[in-house]
Design a binder for these strands. Structure first.
Lengths: 149, 149
DNA sequence: TTAATTAAAGATAAATTTGTCTTTTATTAA
DNA sequence: TTAATAAAAGACAAATTTATCTTTAATTAA
């Protein structure tokens, strides 16, 4: 569905958001450790997210990544996905036709329309805040329980 | 969503089905040309499909690929997807957690459940026959109109 | 039985994605 | 101003996916 880069990006954004609400900036090491991802690769993804204004970074002592309270409320999942994977997942043809539309539909066009629509709706409606609050309350998790998994 | 291999596999299966209903076997060249895919790569995918009993192949003069009338009716999209891409698309966690379940959900688990459910339902219900008949009637297409796209 | 045909199988190669490492730049605090 | 810290940037490497090419095996027809 999403690329690994995007999966890491979503998990990282949520983790950063859970800390920013407590006024804590987190470094790349904390992020990678908490979401169980390769640190240098995760750093690259953070650069994409900061360039796209999704998270904010600060260099130097006491620096790290954060998301403002307002941003946490306004940022939608689709912004993260779009920044990392682009819009193919909710716009492209299900079986890869370059030209696929109502006028020139592929064989699965109508079936996929519903699924893509639901996906787009979910991505558009879900805020970073919703996801972060679930993690803070302990209802949702960002990595596996067992370290050996 | 699906890998390119899977996209080609679905398109190829549909094309073969449209011809088998007319009693025509098609060669790998015809397949690649008709679905606008790289021939040798498509040949590899055909091997996966034949090994999984989704299509039948015949070597030698007059040989090629075909699907029996009964198979066209019984084969579901999910069998093709499963043979080529596995079950990750409709079983795996949306943001890549190895362990993600009702008891240990990731932040997007509940949102994804609906989408994956709809996808699984669609893949499980859609038969090769449905897709092939739409192509035969001219309602659906397997490649772009414009050769330069 | 031989030649032609066609898919299968195996070896390579290119492209993309994922992952790593090193150097540079910016910031803070002493 | 200097040292320490932490992200940014760039080069590189491994793994995976996509694509190609060559050889082999099976089948048919002459």
């Amino acid at each position: 569905m999403f690329s690994k880069a995007c999966e890491y990006g979503i998990r990282a954004s949520i983790f950063i958001a859970t800390n920013s609400s407590k006024g804590i900036r987190v470094g790349i090491k904390d992020v990678a450790k908490e979401i169980d991802s390769p640190e240098p690769f995760t750093a690259k993804i953070m650069q994409i997210l900061t360039k796209n204004g999704i998270i904010h970074s600060a260099k130097g002592v006491g620096g790290g990544f954060e998301v403002s309270d307002e941003a946490v409320k306004s940022i939608k999942l689709i912004q993260i996905v779009d920044a990392i994977d682009g819009d193919k997942i909710y716009k492209g043809c299900g079986i890869g036709l370059k030209e696929c539309s109502e006028d020139h539909p592929c064989p699965v066009h109508h079936e996929f329309k519903k699924i893509r629509g639901l996906l787009l709706e979910m991505l558009t409606k879900t805020t970073l805040e919703q996801l972060a609050s679930g993690v803070k309350s302990g209802d949702f998790f960002l990595k596996t329980l067992n370290i050996n998994d």
